[in-house]
Write a protein that binds this DNA or RNA. Sequence first.
DNA 1: CTGTATCCATGGTGATACTG
DNA 2: CAGTATCACCATGGATACAG
Lengths: 123, 123
Amino acid sequence: MEKQPDLCRVEDALDILVGKWKPIILLHLLQQGTKRFSELKRSMPGITQKMLTQKLRELEEEDIVERIVYPEVPPKVEYSITAYGRSLEPILEAMHEWGTNHIVHKIRKQEGMNKAGSQEERK
Amino acid sequence: MEKQPDLCRVEDALDILVGKWKPIILLHLLQQGTKRFSELKRSMPGITQKMLTQKLRELEEEDIVERIVYPEVPPKVEYSITAYGRSLEPILEAMHEWGTNHIVHKIRKQEGMNKAGSQEERK
DNA sequence: CTGTATCCATGGTGATACTG
DNA sequence: CAGTATCACCATGGATACAG
């Protein structure tokens, strides 16, 4: 199951952006700079420690985020976007904009179907 | 689980682009225009009919691709990108470019590690 | 505080067979 | 030709407990 010859380096970018928490983590770090583990966790209600750790490790592995451990007690670990990671920002923003527009598109479509399907909606 | 307040319309775009075959399908249709089902299938070795149908339906649902059925025997169905679907092209291209660059990045990193650890070349 | 280690539920994907 | 219908697998994600 080889990938298409030249076509799909798209998927390399996709792999990094995708997953239930990765975009959220990236957005948080992009917008709020350096954060420590507990701060990130607090700012993402619903995420488990396991997922946060796992996704941060994956992003670190790709040099998208940087992890700095302070050898203290209690432990302190800070995460931030790398310069390289910032190269993803235009893509994230384009997707955000597209997504925002897309919900409008869907609503319009929905309205169109309502109009076509029924005369009610009189209030 | 609720999404972040404003942050993540990114995921709406992601949902459309993601999946094992969606980017490939989109790229094929973007680059090669209108194609019929069997042509698409042939041009994507490894995809099953089920997956191709399913993904095309999802893309159609989002108005990204258009499906035209010719009432003939044998059946003929053509797929193409909608004008709206083309609005995804910049994102796809940005991702393709980023991905292409990313493999270079990884190779460089790999070389760097080799150099750093080059003292030990045992076995 | 910042992680690991398990176990388990779920869904997306694939193989295969069948149909209008 | 262009699908639909089933079944099975496995990776991803979630809950929980434990540890340095």
